[in-house]
């Protein structure tokens, strides 16, 4: 296969897959007479989506959900970096804290959502906390692994150049670990969005998670699908931003792109 056709197919084939997917969907609901309350045809969802984004009311929901996810993600990045660095650098801290943090990770965090709402109320705060709680672990774990797997030979190089600990951190540890940390961040941002939506399911009266529940209660299933589509697009955007950040900050790193 020539490089041109290869590149063409790379763009074309996914489009074909998507079109085929919707075509099968349309034919199925039509021929099997599936009720539009259960599974509306794609075209109807398309109209609902256009109506949804055309109506200015949706943007306040979008804004709140994005705000919650981004704030939660930012907190997770800060905490993940601090704890990852701490545990990688201080053996005692690792021994004392790592089993505890890993055990915390085993608590099903979604089950904590009612508790967070009890503690932080129905407002944006509880959703930010949920979002941060979900996004923390992959960022923390990758930071820990990243800092711990700095090349021994590179470390020797820095020792032989009489580098001070702080300089070694900025010029060796951080750039070495950055690709791994940012890969963790890619997973983290996706989890942060999930956290925000789940929080909104449970309580409050704003955000796309809330809107989805409201549409369901009104039995507007096509609208519900439209909200899901909008959430998907938001997720895609935020994820692409973080993935782009990784490629921009660590251009030397030849990573296979992660698949979430």
């Amino acid at each position: 296969m020539s490089e041109r056709t290869d590149r063409l197919l790379r763009v074309l084939l996914p489009v074909v897959t998507v079109v085929a997917f919707f075509a099968v969907w349309t034919v199925y609901v039509d021929s099997a007479k599936v009720s539009a309350f259960i599974l509306p045809p794609p075209l109807e969802i398309g109209y609902a989506f256009v109506r949804l984004v055309g109506d200015g009311g949706v943007w306040k929901h979008v804004l709140v959900t994005v705000e919650e996810a981004v704030a939660g993600f930012a907190i997770a990045v800060a905490l993940g970096l601090v704890f990852g660095t701490l545990l990688a650098k201080l053996r005692l801290a690792e021994m004392a804290l790592k089993p505890f943090i890993v055990a915390l990770q085993l608590v099903p965090k979604i089950a904590l959502v009612p508790l967070f709402i009890l503690w932080f109320g129905f407002g944006i705060e509880s959703k930010v906390v949920i979002s941060a709680a979900l996004a923390f672990f992959p960022i923390f774990a990758n930071a820990l692994i990243g800092f711990k797997s700095v090349d021994r030979g590179d470390r020797d190089l820095f020792i032989s150049m009489q580098a001070k600990p702080l300089a070694t951190f900025w010029l060796l540890d951080l750039p070495s670990a950055l690709p791994v940390i940012l890969t963790g961040a890619e997973v983290g941002i996706v989890l942060a969005i999930i956290g925000a939506i789940v929080g909104e399911f449970m309580g409050g009266n704003v955000g796309l998670g809330y809107l989805a529940v409201a549409k369901l209660q009104d039995l507007k299933v096509a609208d519900l699908f439209a909200v899901i589509l909008l959430l998907t697009l938001i997720g895609l955007t935020l994820y692409s931003l973080v993935a782009g950040l990784r490629r921009w900050l660590t251009p030397w790193h030849q990573a296979v792109d992660t698949i979430i």
């Binding site: 030979g153 590179d154 020797d156 190089l157 032989s160 150049m161 009489q162 010029l171 060796l172 750039p175 660590t250 030397w252 790193h253």
Partner: peptide, 17 residues
């Protein structure tokens, strides 16, 4: 003692960043 030494390793060890 090591202040004025410079070591060149068997591998070049240039930093990719």
């Amino acid at each position: 003692a090591t202040r004025d030494m410079a070591m060149m390793f068997q591998e070049a060890r240039l930093l990719p960043w």
